[in-house]
Amino acid sequence: MTAVATGEQLSARYLGVPGERVFTLSFQPQQAARGQVLYLPPFAEEMNRCRALAAAQARQFAAAGYGCTLMDYRGTGDSDGVFEAVSLQDWLADVGLVLDDIAQRYSQPPLLWGIRSGCLLGACTAGAANASSTVTNSTAASAIGTRIAGLLMLQPVVSGRRFVRQLVRQRIAAAVERGAGETSSEDIQQRWQAGESVEIGGYQPSARLMLELEQMELTDFNLAGLPLRWLEHLGEGQDEPGLAVQRMLDTLREGGAQVELHGFAGPAIWQLNERAATPELLDVLGALYRP
């Protein structure tokens, strides 16, 4: 384990104005970095389940010569704001803020590394950057004008609509288990439409956040020309992903993205409540981003 001895440079920083500050933790290699990576966490409990993996892979990136920045969206982790009050637009603005900072510091277009729903935020950001780069010499080089080196998507959520439906189902199943009154998806939808926040799995996301998340579909973003590495969990004895993933990859290729698929084995950590080591996944990532 020489990587521990050589180490990486760690810096924790807050970006933005007080009350809206975004926490970032940057892992930089000792020597000049070959490239930068920005990690986009998944949603709610999945975010917590993936924290250890994100830190381990950030170290592995640094050991391979890449700088990697971890961030907490507002209302999560060490960033300002409360979860109940944030919107998806806030989070996309946070991503833009961190991208600007990376561009200023390192002058390297970063790779956007998402896990689960973080991939939707990555694709949305990359899609917006793609759209603005086709406008001649766009000097509106705010967050959106920042160039993106590519996307690394780990077990991506492809449909916000399906993802939200699955989150809602958790609430329905839990209610059934408690013997509580019937709640239906339609009922929850109506409450969101009325602006009411509904508790889901111990979290209280705003109606706006959930309605925005529902509108996010991976196929809606212009990823033409972007390198896209898709990492999909494969169960034992499975050598290729399910039909839905294969169809999605075809659609992305037709849209002009340069798609590579890589499978990984081991525990599906984003859905496990007990922490599990993920050597298989770290090996796949280690092989893709070699020193």
């Binding site: 399906r162 699955q166 189902r169 839905a244 859905q271």
Partner: peptide
């Protein structure tokens, strides 16, 4: 339990691309 049920239903949807209604 109920959490297993929801994660299994989600896995079926993700693997097959189908929609499962309440």
């Amino acid at each position: 339990n109920s959490l297993t049920i929801t994660s299994i239903l989600a896995a079926i949807e993700d693997e097959t691309g189908c929609e499962i209604h309440d």
